[in-house]
Design a protein around this nucleic acid. Sequence first.
DNA 1: GTGAAAGCGCTAACAG
DNA 2: CTGTTAGCGCTTTCAC
Lengths: 342, 342
Amino acid sequence: MGAVTLKDVAAASGVSVATASQALAGRGRMTDATRERVRRAADDLGYLANALARGLRTGRTQALGVHHERAAANLATSYFRDFLAGAIEAAHRHDHDLVVLSSDTHRPRTTAPHVDGVIVVDPIADDRRARELMELPVPVVAGEHVPSSMPPCAVVAADHATAVRAVLDAAAARGVRRPLLAAPDANSGWGEVLREVVGAWCAERGVEPVLVATRFGEQSIERHRELLTPVLAARPEVDMVLGASPFAVQGAMSVLRGLGRAPGRDVLVAACADEPGLLLEDPPVTAVELPAHALGVACVERLVAILDDERGPSAALGTVQTVPAPVHLRASTAGSPATAST
Amino acid sequence: MGAVTLKDVAAASGVSVATASQALAGRGRMTDATRERVRRAADDLGYLANALARGLRTGRTQALGVHHERAAANLATSYFRDFLAGAIEAAHRHDHDLVVLSSDTHRPRTTAPHVDGVIVVDPIADDRRARELMELPVPVVAGEHVPSSMPPCAVVAADHATAVRAVLDAAAARGVRRPLLAAPDANSGWGEVLREVVGAWCAERGVEPVLVATRFGEQSIERHRELLTPVLAARPEVDMVLGASPFAVQGAMSVLRGLGRAPGRDVLVAACADEPGLLLEDPPVTAVELPAHALGVACVERLVAILDDERGPSAALGTVQTVPAPVHLRASTAGSPATAST
DNA sequence: GTGAAAGCGCTAACAG
DNA sequence: CTGTTAGCGCTTTCAC
């Protein structure tokens, strides 16, 4: 356990720790001979600077943190895995370590993580850990929109507006007039944005969207069925269902069938987050692909840029940077509900 | 950037920093009133201990490091992703952060990462970064066998011996007598083990295995074809090809077909690492499944155990812990080469 | 050109 | 019961 310290190097090369520090850092003025001597000593002893001590002094740790609510569990999803892969790739390119912050415990952190900045993936309003991190005295970048009830920070998000509009416009061309949106409630910034986009689109056409609030991260089709059954029964004028998650869409399709309405024919359906399973549905479901890997990369790039920014991190607060989200039009939006329901 | 320090908390609650420290840590003896006062002050100020300073003092950082050669690139493989998922899960369960160590650069680290221990996934002899980490004054656990030319450390590995023997025994039951093994060279501990296992199995039967050395991580089927073509042409007595990677197997199958020998019929084939693609081959290829997720978990558990071990980390050096590796017998080992080639 | 000294924020001795 | 002191390993003035 005997780590070699700068003191050892200094002693071995017959200089003071101060000189040794400068010699290795390439700073300070000294004879090349001295510098070389110190360098050799460091090499011989296998000296590695203690990152903790250095960080304590300099305020930089050369590490970035990533937080995701229940990170361990969410690693089962390809979204988080892809995101993480992108983030690691980008962090390493900038010679930073990438710390996956502990998130399992429900008790608050007692210690500020040793990172220069933090990325919060999918900030959720009731995620206490996320809140804690966002109040840390280090810059924070949110991967996806921040719910309005959370403190503002720099945001990197998929371009949902453009993507969802593309889906809606395609549907409108098939005659759709009254879309229903089943999306997460105000806990999720993503949900808020989807609501806004659909709301704006409908407003332009002088109609009211039908909105159903779901819980972010709800993985149960059955639960979505329960939420959607009364609404779809009461609103026969709905000619399209936009589900935020694949689960919402699958729930909706099941409810629609129960009501004798054929998804993709009498009622168009689409998802705001793609998954391989949607391709296997009958009919295959139109969906927006969330560019997880690109988002991971972009979040790190953004964070690094903020750290390097002379003007300080506050310049970035609340600003949103956007990453394109490809749209996959499939058979579920190829029907003509207007004709069918007239 | 104004982080709240212990000094602030102490000042606010009218005690010294030392007392404040103990009050929050629940150590030391003091009136409950004082302790409560300090706690409240800390809460009010939003105090979070600086992990760097704490770590510097205590020598523990509550973080574990993971290294994989070219981690960023390898995140494309499901093996590393699953491994990482398992490691993160386990680390968080033990309330540790998980640091994915920077691995892209070819220049050596100048700083020892702030972690209590390191996991080296797939240690490769010519990975300089892995070597550096293994010489760090913190415990190291290797995920997979360590090449004999590297310093020893605690090892957690899949139980290749049992799995490969199961494959060979099944093949022997179909009449196989002369297996060929195409596996990574001495750069890879995995390769060394495979060689040993096949060697031992053959020795028990009084035959010499045919060995072909490949490069660890070689992803090209074509390259494997080149390596295998001369050997398979010269050794018609080979009645089974065991490829370490799916690429080796696919290369071998292609070569065999070129020689007019039907894989799975005239010559059995199997892989020592499963991949979905092997199922789609014709015939589907028998393979050993590498339990990446379980290995990730086991490595972290092992590392935590070593850190908690009173006897110090040296007790674990060189000891191997094993994780079961499921064997999937498929059509590629269902033929009877002995009959065919007699 | 080089060394001495201070201090980053924290914890662990030991006084009082 | 609580405060004082020392120091983890490093960087950074500032003297010499």
